[in-house]
Simulated assay, not measured.
Amino acid sequence: MKLFVDTDSDTRLARRVPRDINERGRDLEQVLNQYMNFVKPAFEEFCSPTKKFADVIIPRGADNHVAIDLIVHHIWDILHGNNRLDGDKLLVAMPEHI
């Protein structure tokens, strides 16, 4: 299963700024410079194009608990052999004890 965790650029930057300042000792100007000149262009060139190949796109990233729960249950089913195909649709049996 190919997943793409889709988070908007404002959220990515908002997470990066405090991390780079607190954990990497950079100042705000350094963080913004690196983001604009390297991180954002690299994301647009290498990461963003892979979205079209994803089986599942998870909007809002880790904040999307519904999508994460569905994926966890799907993987659980795969590991326990509870999946069955019905035409083009994958039917997922939801485990009761998770």
Rank of each mutant, 00 (worst) to 15 (best):
F4W: 05
F4G: 02
F4I: 11
F4P: 00
F4D: 02
V5W: 05
V5N: 13
V5R: 00
V5P: 01
V5G: 08
V5I: 14
V5D: 07
D6F: 05
D6S: 12
T7A: 14
T7D: 10
T7Q: 01
T7W: 06
T7P: 08
T7C: 13
T7H: 13
T7G: 08
D8T: 11
D8Y: 06
S9R: 15
S9P: 14
S9M: 15
S9I: 15
D10T: 08
D10K: 15
D10V: 06
D10W: 08
D10G: 07
D10S: 13
D10Y: 05
D10P: 03
T11E: 13
T11K: 02
T11A: 14
T11W: 10
R12E: 00
R12F: 01
R12H: 04
L13G: 09
A14C: 12
A14V: 12
A14I: 04
A14L: 09
A14M: 05
R15T: 08
R15L: 03
R15Q: 10
R15H: 09
R15W: 03
R15D: 01
R16G: 04
R16T: 01
R16L: 10
V17T: 03
V17D: 03
P18N: 12
P18C: 09
P18Q: 03
P18D: 00
P18L: 04
R19W: 01
R19C: 03
R19G: 04
R19P: 01
R19Y: 00
D20G: 00
D20M: 07
I21R: 12
I21C: 05
I21T: 06
N22Y: 02
N22V: 02
N22M: 07
N22P: 02
N22F: 00
N22T: 10
N22D: 11
E23T: 12
E23D: 05
E23N: 11
E23L: 05
E23R: 13
E23Q: 13
E23M: 11
E23A: 09
E23W: 04
R24E: 06
R24L: 06
R24T: 12
R24Y: 04
R24W: 03
R24Q: 07
R24S: 04
R24H: 06
R24P: 05
G25T: 07
G25Y: 01
G25F: 13
G25W: 09
G25A: 07
R26F: 10
R26V: 08
R26H: 06
R26P: 02
D27N: 15
D27H: 09
D27F: 02
D27T: 06
D27K: 12
L28T: 01
L28V: 09
L28W: 04
E29Y: 10
E29V: 08
E29W: 13
E29H: 14
Q30F: 02
Q30C: 09
Q30A: 11
Q30R: 13
Q30M: 04
V31W: 05
V31I: 11
V31C: 12
V31L: 10
V31T: 07
V31Q: 09
L32S: 09
L32N: 07
L32G: 06
L32V: 04
L32P: 01
N33L: 14
N33C: 07
N33M: 03
N33G: 15
Q34F: 00
Q34H: 11
Q34C: 05
Q34P: 10
Q34L: 07
Y35F: 05
Y35V: 10
Y35G: 10
Y35M: 05
Y35Q: 07
Y35D: 12
M36K: 15
M36A: 15
M36N: 14
M36V: 14
M36C: 11
M36H: 11
